[in-house]
């Protein structure tokens, strides 16, 4: 199938992009890498009147380290994060997560901001950035605001982003040297969206402990009590029963099989963190 008709514009800065979107009165979509939007356009599941291509706006295209944080422009591609091992030495989880997203050909074009805005429940970034306590910087006619990544995604394909806002950057804290992290996703086929996923971050120096499960029917869900227990007691707190109970409480709608799959995935992500 071929896309329905649309117009196309490629503004040079964030301001112009926001204006272009606002001027289209709700009939425009931002286009970054187009790796989710492209298929939906071709399948005519979405039919915006205007695409505002933000993929080349300089301000959205860089990775910068400032004041103990990593600022990743929204239009930075997964492949660029995958390949940025050196500049991301203080948060090696980012390239590790990027490398497992879909296929290299998709990673070459797909962007971190696009992935967050699209908010597929099974996508990697909403999960990883929640576990990493990242902050999403969004911009719109009313100005810039920042949203903690854990609260950014509300449900499947639904975020806090207003219709006239765009993601500008993602601020990810640097991990301290004592930090440990683990990621595990279970895909029935390489590169596909996973059936279950979990990520864990423990950073004693920053007193942060996070365990998140993803690939649910909505946003990633934190297992705070489990994370806290592990932070306080280490591996002793990581029992199959504890994980199962944590999942059952946090995601009650899962059936027995879904619970088992997510519990195993969570167990492995945390084990990986403990072993790192």
């Amino acid at each position: 199938m071929k896309s329905a008709k649309f117009d196309y514009t490629r503004p040079h800065d964030v301001r112009a992009a926001i204006h272009a979107l606002a001027d289209a009165l709700g009939e425009a979509k931002f286009l970054a890498g187009g790796q989710s939007l492209g298929p939906m356009l071709n399948l005519r599941l979405t039919r915006p009147k205007l695409l505002v291509d933000v993929s080349r706006i300089e301000a959205l295209r860089s990775i910068d380290v400032v004041n103990g944080s990593i600022r990743i422009g929204a239009a930075v591609t997964h492949a660029e994060i995958e390949d940025a091992g050196a500049s991301l030495a203080r948060n090696a989880m980012l390239p590790a997560v990027a490398r497992e997203i879909a296929y290299r050909t998709i990673r070459n074009r797909g962007t971190i901001g696009g992935s967050l805005a699209h908010a597929d429940p099974a996508a990697d970034w909403p999960l990883a950035l929640a576990a990493l306590d990242a902050v999403i910087i969004v911009n719109g006619p009313a100005g810039q605001r920042s949203i903690p990544s854990a609260r950014f995604m509300l449900a499947a394909f639904t975020t806090q982003l207003a219709d006239d806002e765009m993601i500008e950057a993602i601020i990810v804290p640097e991990l301290s040297p004592s930090a440990r992290w683990g990621t595990y996703k279970f895909c029935k086929r390489t590169g596909e969206f996973p059936d279950a996923a979990a990520m864990a971050v423990f950073d004693p120096a920053r007193r942060i402990a996070r365990v998140y499960v993803g690939a649910l029917s909505g946003a990633p869900v934190p297992l705070d009590a489990l994370a806290r227990g592990i932070a306080q007691q280490g591996a002793v707190a990581l029992t199959a029963t504890a994980v199962d109970r944590a999942i059952a409480m946090a995601v009650p709608e899962l059936d027995a099989v879904g619970r088992k799959m997510h519990a195993a995935t969570t167990m492995r992500a945390v084990q990986q963190a403990l072993a790192s």
């Binding site: 298929p39 399948l43 029935k188 086929r189 390489t190 590169g191 596909e192 969206f193």
Partner: peptide, 13 residues
């Protein structure tokens, strides 16, 4: 109705 739903084996499968 798409390859997102219909899983084809790839080189790793």
């Amino acid at each position: 109705s798409t390859f997102m739903d219909y899983t084809m084996p790839g080189a790793t499968e």
